[in-house]
């Protein structure tokens, strides 16, 4: 069984560029409460919110670097460095626990020899812990590069492993 019709080549991101970063910031600057939309868009473009990005955002919004850094650090979504080419979010919350999600998660992590929120040495996969994907009647659940996967079992794990092959 394959995982889905959507082609998953992984997430393509560019290296930080002052010009592109400023353009992204400029798109939001007049809005009320622009910081989170800016950080989301910067991460989509560059794969993370880098130290350079924090400086650029702080200057543009007239905030201190510490304030921006504090927001970036508070939210689990924002990364300081890019993730692997594929990102797998595995749900660790109660509904998925009740269906044996923790055992499956452990098997997958061992297979790639990484821990939670770790990236494989070859950079092909990051596995992140998440607490609920809203797929709780189809537990255990996961999300690979934004695509939902339910009723996780050994066979679907094998599919995921194949999907992220280099």
């Amino acid at each position: 069984m394959g995982l889905g019709s959507a082609a998953r080549s992984g997430v393509a991101v560019a290296a930080w560029s002052e010009a592109e970063g400023s353009a992204i910031i400029g798109r939001h600057i007049g809005r009320p409460g622009p910081l989170l939309p800016i950080l989301h868009d910067l991460q989509t473009a560059f794969g993370c919110v880098s130290a350079e990005a924090v400086v650029a955002v702080a200057e543009a919004l007239n905030l201190t670097r510490a304030e921006v850094h504090g927001v970036v650090g508070f939210y689990r979504d924002f990364r300081r460095a890019p993730a692997g080419r594929h990102v797998l979010k595995l749900c660790r919350a109660e509904a998925c626990q009740s269906m044996g999600g923790e055992v499956l998660a452990r098997q997958l992590l061992d297979r790639f020899a990484i821990g939670w929120d770790g990236t494989t040495a070859d950079g092909r996969l990051t596995v992140e812990a998440t607490y609920c994907l809203g797929l709780c009647a189809c537990a255990p659940a996961a999300m690979l590069d934004g695509q939902p996967i339910g009723r996780l079992d050994r066979a679907t794990l094998d599919d995921i492993v194949r999907e992220v092959e280099p």
Binding site: S5, G134, P148
Partner: peptide
Amino acid sequence: DAAARAVGADRVAA
């Protein structure tokens, strides 16, 4: 629905 997609609804539609 995302939960239906999570168990193969896109493949069925295709």
